[in-house]
Design a protein around this nucleic acid. Structure first.
Length: 863
RNA sequence: GCGGGCGUGAUGGAAUGGUAGACAUACCAGACUUAAAAUCUGUUGGGGCGUAGCCCCGUGUGGGUUCGAGUCCCACCGCCCGCACCA
C-alpha cells in the first residue's frame, strides 16, 4: 500500500497543468465563456489564509465551469501602487519599486503551490508602466469627455501620510490607513464626476440580482438620495450680497413650524460676518476645531450664535425668524443652511429649548392632542397624522403625502422648487505621493493646464528619488518635473500629484480581457469576456471599490473602451467571510527597569504553534504555563493568532488547506481555523487515497453485492455536490462528499462499480482538491486530465429510489414510518398508513378527519 | 437614532413549509498493539417508563397562520454589521 504524499503529487500535477496549458483562456465561439475573478491582492509580501480562502472559492467555480464546458477566464494580478511601499522605503531604505516587485515575486511563488487554475499569461501589476500608461490614456479620454475636472476644494488632509483622502477614505474622522485625525485644507484637486451618475448608480442597483442585498443597501445609503424643497428666505438686515438664504429641507410640510434659520460655520454668510466680528470668528473657530472626531460628534452640545439677522417667513412676511450660526450644520450637505422646526426634529428641539425659541407643531397624533410638546414629535413618514398647521393636502395624511403636496404647493406659489439631492460627492483622486500613477497633465504659464499627448504616454515615474524628507519626492525632482508644454513648447511643469490607488483597481477587470493591448482595452475582447460572471472578495470593499468600478465601467463605456452591456461590470458578487483563529494569551507584569515602569500588567500573545493541549487545558509548550483562550477573531499578526499557509502546505499539502477552508462554515461567514479541523481534512484525503489503492488492488472480475445501491448513492452525491457548487454551498457539498466516501468505504460492490464510484468521487472533489483528484483519476486509468474531463451528470432515474421510507404523522407528530414503492398511489399509501399499528393505537378508535399524503415525503393523519 | 442581518447539541454548522441536529470537531467506550501513536468501530439534545421498545419536552421568548413551522407573519429579548448632527 502506498502513502498519500501531497508534496510529491501536487508538484507533479501542477507541472502537468502548466505543460498542457489547460488554464489559458482562449476566445472561441464554440463554447460559452465564463469570467471568474477574485479581488486581486496588494503585494504585501506574504499570502495569508484569507487569500487562500478567497482564491480557493474562485478556483472551485473556475474548475467547475471548465468541467462543464466553458471557456474560462480566471486571471490574477497585483494591486501594486500604494503607501506601504513608500512607508517601507522610508523605514528600511530601498526603493518602493524594488520592494513591490520583490514582494510580487515572493507572493507569486507562495501562491503557485496552491494549484490555482489561473491563466498566468495575463498577469500584470498596476505599477507596470504598460498598465498605468493605459490608465493615463483613460484619464485623458475622461478629461476630454468632462468626466474628470479640477477644482478648489476643502479636502481631508491626512497629516501622517501627508496626503489628501477621499470622503470614503475617512473613517470616523481618521485616515483609513494611517488612523491619524484628519484636518481640513483647501487645495486644487482633480475630481471624477461620479456625482453626475448618482441617479444611475443608484437605480441600476436594482438590476444586480446576484449581488448580496446588504452590499446594494450599503451603496444605496452611501449614494443617499433625498427628495425635498429648496427655497430662499429673504433677509432683513444682512450684509450686502446676502439678501437671500437658500435652504434645503426634506420636510417642507413643517414649514409653518419654522422657528429659526441656521447656517453652517462654513456658510458664506458666516464667513462674511466672521470678518467683521471677532465674536463670530471665535465661535466659528471653536466649531471647526475637532469637529470631525467621533467623540466630538457624539458628545458635542448643540451650539448656536445669534447673528442678530432675521429673515421673513415666505408665507407670512410679517413673521421674522432669527438667524443662528450653528455647529451641527454641515456646509457640504444641502445648501449649508436649514430652517429649524423644533416640534418635529429632536436636534432642533434641543437647540430651541437651549436658546428659548418657540416650538410650533404642524401636525399632531390626533385632533384633540395637546399642542404643547414636551419633546419632539417624530412619527414615521408612513404614519397618518393630523395637520393642525398644514398648508397643502388633506388634514389627515401621512408625512410622505404631505411632503409631496407641500412641494407641489410651494412650486405653484413660487416658493422654491422640489429638488433631489445626493449624499454622494465627486471623487477626489489627487494624491501627493510618489508611488502611484502620475496624472498626465502639464501646467504651463501661458496655456494653463494642458493634457499630455497620448504618444508621450506612459508618463513614467522616475526611479531616482529619495524619501528622506516628508512630502512628495516628485515635487523635488526638477528633471522629471520640468518639461516642455505639449501645446506651446514653452518651459512648463508636470503635474506632480499621482492618482488614488482606487483608480488602479477600478478597471483592472477590464484590462484582463486584453492585458497586452496598446489601448486600455480591445473592444472585441472586452465584448467577448465582459462581464465578470462571478466576482469574489471581502465585504470591506462593499462601498468604495465596487462603487468606483461601477462608475468607471460607465465612464469607459462613454469613452468607447467598454461595450454598453458592461456598464454593470460584475454580474454576480459574492462576499466571503474571514478566516479566524483563537487567540492565546498570558499575563505578566513588567520588571524593574522596564521603560513602562515596574509591575505594570501587560498581555503576552502566543502563536498557535507555541501552545499545546495537556489534560484538557491549553498550555505553553516551553514551560507548561496555562494560556487564556480568547474566542476566535480575525487573524492578525499583532495578536499572533495566525497560521501561515506555507506551513500548512508543507505539513499537509495544498489540497488539505483548500478542503479545510471550504469545509467548516458557509463561505459568506467567517471560518475558524483549528488544528484539529485541518488534521481531519488531511485524514479524509488520506482515506480517499487509500480507498483508491484498495480498489486498484481488487479482483477485477469478482462479483460484488450492492452495485445498484452504490451507484444510486453516487448519482445522488453528483446531484447534491453540483447543486452545492452552483449555489456557493461548498460546506454542504463537502459534507455530502464525506458521507459518500463512508458509503464507498463500506461498499461490497463489484470492482467495476467501485471504480466508477471512486472516479466520480475524484471528479466531484476535483474543484476543491485538484491534485489528489488528478492522481486518483490517473491511477484508475481515467482518460486525459481530470480538469478537462466532463463533469459527472447525475442520472435522474437513479435519483429516485424504488422504495421510499415515509414518516407517518398523526396531528403533526411522527408516530411511525413505512416502506412503500415510490410509485404507489396515494390511496394505497393512505390505506397502509391508517392500518399501521402505531397509528391505530394513537387514533384510539377515533376516525381520521383527513389524511394528507405528500408523495415521497410524508403522510399526516388529522384526527 | 436610521437601516440590515443573525439567534439550532459541548463546538463549527445541516435541513425546496414535510422524520430537527446531515457532515465535521470534541468527549466517551471498544477493536488492533507489550505500550503509545496511527487506523478502524460504536455512543453522545434533555427527561421519563413497564427499557429488543415506547412516551414526553426541545431550534432565544411569547403569540399567530398551517394538516404540518427552525423555516412564513406579529411583538419582545439578545448579539453582530453598516450608516449617521444628512436638514
Amino acid at each position: 500500500m502506498t502513502r498519500y504524499t501531497p508534496s510529491e503529487i501536487e508538484a507533479r500535477w501542477q507541472a502537468a497543468w502548466e505543460e498542457s496549458a489547460v488554464f489559458k483562456a482562449v476566445r472561441s465561439a464554440d463554447k460559452p465563456k465564463y469570467y471568474v475573478l477574485e479581488m486581486f491582492p496588494y503585494p504585501s509580501g506574504r499570502i495569508h489564509m484569507g487569500h487562500v480562502r478567497n482564491y480557493t472559492m474562485g478556483d472551485v467555480i473556475a474548475r467547475y465551469k471548465l468541467a462543464t464546458g466553458h471557456n474560462v477566464l480566471h486571471p490574477m494580478g497585483w494591486d501594486a501602487f500604494g503607501m506601504p511601499a513608500e512607508n517601507a522605503a522610508m523605514a528600511i531604505g530601498g526603493h518602493p519599486k524594488d520592494w513591490t516587485y520583490g514582494n510580487i515575486k515572493d507572493m507569486r511563488d507562495q501562491m503557485k503551490p496552491l494549484g490555482l487554475s489561473i491563466d498566468w499569461s495575463r498577469e500584470f501589476a498596476t505599477c507596470d508602466p504598460e498598465y498605468y500608461g493605459q490608465q493615463q490614456a483613460l484619464f485623458l479620454d475622461f478629461l476630454a469627455e468632462g468626466l474628470v475636472y479640477r477644482k478648489n476644494a476643502i479636502v481631508n488632509w491626512d497629516p501622517v501620510d501627508m496626503t489628501v483622502l477621499a470622503n470614503e477614505q475617512v473613517e470616523a474622522g481618521r485616515g483609513w490607513r494611517s488612523g491619524a485625525l484628519v484636518e481640513r485644507r483647501e487645495l486644487t484637486q482633480w475630481f471624477f464626476k461620479i456625482s453626475d451618475h448618482s441617479e444611475e448608480l443608484l437605480s441600476a442597483l436594482e438590476t444586480l440580482d446576484n449581488w448580496p442585498a446588504k452590499v446594494k443597501l450599503m451603496q444605496a445609503n452611501w449614494i443617499g438620495k433625498s427628495r425635498g424643497l429648496q427655497f430662499a428666505f429673504s433677509t432683513v438686515n444682512a450684509p450686502e450680497g446676502h439678501d437671500r438664504i437658500e435652504v434645503y429641507t426634506t420636510r417642507p410640510d413643517t414649514l409653518l413650524g419654522a422657528s429659526f434659520v441656521g447656517v453652517s460655520p462654513d456658510h458664506p454668510l458666516a464667513k462674511e460676518l466672521e470678518r467683521g466680528n471677532p465674536d463670530v470668528a471665535a465661535f466659528c473657530a471653536e466649531c471647526r476645531k475637532g469637529g470631525t472626531t467621533e467623540e466630538a460628534i457624539e458628545t458635542a452640545e448643540k451650539l448656536g450664535f445669534d447673528t442678530g439677522i432675521t429673515v421673513r417667513h415666505p408665507f407670512d412676511t410679517a413673521h421674522e425668524l432669527p438667524v443662528y450660526i450653528a455647529n451641527f450644520i454641515l456646509m457640504d450637505y444641502g445648501t449649508g443652511a436649514i430652517f429649524g422646526c423644533p416640534a418635529h426634529d429632536e436636534r432642533d428641539f434641543e437647540f430651541a429649548t437651549k436658546y428659548g425659541l418657540p416650538i410650533i407643531s404642524t401636525y399632531l397624533p390626533s385632533e384633540d392632542s395637546a399642542d404643547v410638546l414636551e419633546e419632539a414629535y417624530v412619527p414615521a413618514k408612513t404614519d397618518k397624522v393630523f395637520y393642525n398647521r398644514g398648508f397643502a393636502g388633506e388634514q389627515w395624511q401621512t408625512g410622505s403625502e404631505a411632503i409631496d403636496t407641500a412641494i407641489a404647493f410651494c412650486e405653484s406659489n413660487g416658493v422654491g422648487q422640489g429638488v433631489t439631492k445626493f449624499r454622494l460627492r465627486d471623487w477626489g483622486l489627487s494624491r501627493q505621493r510618489y508611488w502611484g500613477c502620475p496624472i498626465p497633465v502639464v501646467h504651463c504659464d501661458t496655456c494653463g493646464v494642458v493634457p499630455e499627448k497620448k504618444e508621450n504616454l506612459p508618463i513614467e515615474l522616475p526611479y531616482d528619488v529619495s524619501f528622506d524628507t516628508p512630502g512628495n519626492p516628485l515635487d523635488r525632482h526638477p528633471t522629471w518635473r520640468d518639461c516642455a508644454c505639449p501645446s506651446c513648447g514653452a518651459p512648463a511643469r508636470r503635474e506632480t500629484d499621482t492618482m488614488d490607488t482606487f483608480v488602479d483597481s477600478s478597471w483592472y477587470f477590464a484590462r484582463f480581457t486584453a492585458p497586452d493591448a496598446d489601448t486600455p482595452t480591445v473592444m472585441e475582447d472586452a465584448s467577448y469576456w465582459m462581464n465578470v460572471d462571478q466576482y469574489i472578495g471581502g465585504i470591506e470593499h462593499a462601498i468604495l471599490h465596487l462603487l468606483y468600478s461601477r462608475f468607471f465601467a460607465r465612464a469607459m463605456q462613454i469613452t468607447g473602451h467598454l461595450p454598453e452591456s458592461a456598464v454593470e461590470p460584475f454580474d454576480a458578487l459574492f462576499t466571503q467571510g474571514m478566516v479566524t483563529h483563537e487567540i492565546y494569551q498570558t499575563h505578566g507584569r513588567t520588571r524593574a527597569g522596564d521603560r513602562r515602569g515596574e509591575g505594570v500588567p501587560f498581555t503576552r500573545y502566543h502563536f498557535p504553534e507555541e501552545v499545546t493541549q495537556r489534560d484538557g487545558k491549553m498550555v505553553l509548550i516551553t514551560d507548561g504555563t496555562e494560556v487564556e483562550i480568547v474566542p476566535s477573531a480575525k487573524m492578525s499578526k499583532s495578536k499572533k493568532n495566525v497560521v501561515d499557509p506555507l506551513n500548512i502546505i508543507s505539513a499537509y499539502g495544498a489540497d488539505t488547506a483548500r478542503w479545510f477552508v471550504l469545509s467548516d462554515s458557509p463561505p459568506e461567514r467567517d471560518v475558524e481555523w483549528t488544528a484539529s479541523g485541518a488534521e481531519a481534512a488531511h485524514k479524509h484525503l488520506s482515506r480517499v487515497w487509500n480507498l483508491c489503492d484498495r480498489i486498484s488492488a481488487m479482483d477485477k472480475d469478482a462479483k460484488g453485492e450492492g452495485d445498484d445501491d452504490l451507484l444510486r448513492a453516487m448519482h445522488k452525491t453528483s446531484h447534491d455536490v453540483t447543486m452545492g457548487v452552483e449555489s456557493f454551498g461548498f460546506n454542504a457539498a463537502i459534507a455530502k462528499l464525506y458521507a459518500f466516501t463512508a458509503t464507498l468505504q463500506k461498499s461490497k460492490a463489484s470492482h467495476a462499480a467501485q471504480r466508477e464510484a471512486v472516479m466520480t468521487l475524484a471528479q466531484l472533489m476535483s474543484p476543491m482538491t485538484p491534485h489528489l483528484s488528478e492522481d486518483i483519476w490517473a491511477h484508475q486509468g481515467g482518460e486525459g486530465l481530470i480538469v478537462t474531463a466532463p463533469w459527472p451528470q447525475a442520472d435522474e432515474a437513479m435519483l429516485v429510489d424504488d422504495t421510499v421510507t415515509l414518516p407517518i404523522q398523526v396531528n403533526g407528530k411522527r408516530r411511525a414510518e413505512i416502506q412503500v414503492p415510490a410509485d404507489m398511489p396515494k390511496e394505497e399509501v393512505e390505506k397502509i398508513a391508517l392500518a399501521h399499528e402505531a397509528v391505530v393505537r394513537t387514533l384510539d378508535g377515533a376516525a381520521p378527519k383527513k389524511v394528507i399524503v405528500v408523495p415521497g415525503r410524508i403522510v399526516n393523519v388529522v384526527a
